[in-house]
Design a protein around this nucleic acid. Structure first.
Lengths: 151, 151
DNA sequence: GTCAAAGTTTACGTTAACGTAAAGTGTATG
DNA sequence: CATACACTTTACGTTAACGTAAACTTTGAC
């Protein structure tokens, strides 16, 4: 939010040989960190908070596609102002889904509905804030114009 | 964000006599607090952080329309995940506008552009998150349906 | 083998945004 | 006049989300 992080668009070379299993490669913590512009510390912290659960190869953490996706979703949630606790709630429910009982599933639907309502509120907030910024923008340009004329 | 604050819709009695100056009434800190569902402490804190500057009547803080609007904007910014420092930046620039020099005005326009870009990123994040939630929702309902059939 | 790079654990530090408690002031009301 | 209520200042406490430092292991390169 306050990071001014310009989204890094890594240009993939289009001449890569098709992988046999293009979906199931793994990542080190450093790779993920660079990929998402966070520190390894952050990723370990998310694990500690129950948001990630990478395999181990000896001592080292091995991240799979699923982990990468989870990290992506987590960071997206963060950008939208959700707390890690809130994000975990959704993520864990989602994982518990396949064998979930009716009560759990209904709870999940409830949570989803809540989050959706919050997103809707955010959309409205964004809309209003944009209007205000348009106004400020216009005034500033006007003022600049005035300065130019009589300057 | 994590407050589950249901927006309180205060039903205004429609039989109030028309105020002579309907726009320039004042508010106590408690009134504003209730109005926006925050504590007085929060409002005082925002003042301390340079986001509000109410008049005083003796020792007591007197808030005017302008202050109320500022508080509203501040809370909106917060809901969108902006820090108080970021919010202050915009608000103070805005206030310095009328007599602003060209450099300040351009700086303001820059800030506005940055914030706008951030809002756009948020819109995209919301869009993606919604898609994912739609998916989770559908799966959960399917699973519930299955349980109902073979239950 | 050794050196650098990347990884690990443990633990204390930091910042933002308030919460909470104590102690005092002002005023309207029974 | 006493009491209740809303307000004030001062100051220490708390939580989330990491940062940072220290000390150690693993691993590929030379």
């Amino acid at each position: 939010m306050s990071k001014t992080a310009s989204a890094s668009r890594a240009a993939g070379s289009s001449s890569e040989a098709r992988q046999p299993t293009p979906i199931s490669r793994t990542y080190s913590i450093g790779e993920l960190a660079k990929m998402f512009e966070v520190t390894p510390r952050t990723i370990r912290f998310y694990e500690q908070e129950g948001l990630l659960a990478p395999r181990r190869q000896g001592q080292k953490r091995i991240y799979r596609e699923k982990d990468r996706v989870r990290l992506k979703l987590t960071l997206r949630g963060k950008r939208l102002g959700f707390s890690l606790a809130e994000i975990r709630e959704v993520v864990m429910m989602y994982d518990a889904m396949p064998d979930g009982n009716a009560r759990q599933l209904k709870r999940l639907l409830e949570i989803i509905a809540e989050k959706r309502a919050e997103l809707d509120r955010q959309l409205e907030d964004i809309r209003l804030m944009r209007l205000e910024m348009d106004d400020v923008d216009r005034r500033a340009r006007d003022a600049l114009g005035q300065l130019g004329e009589k300057g």
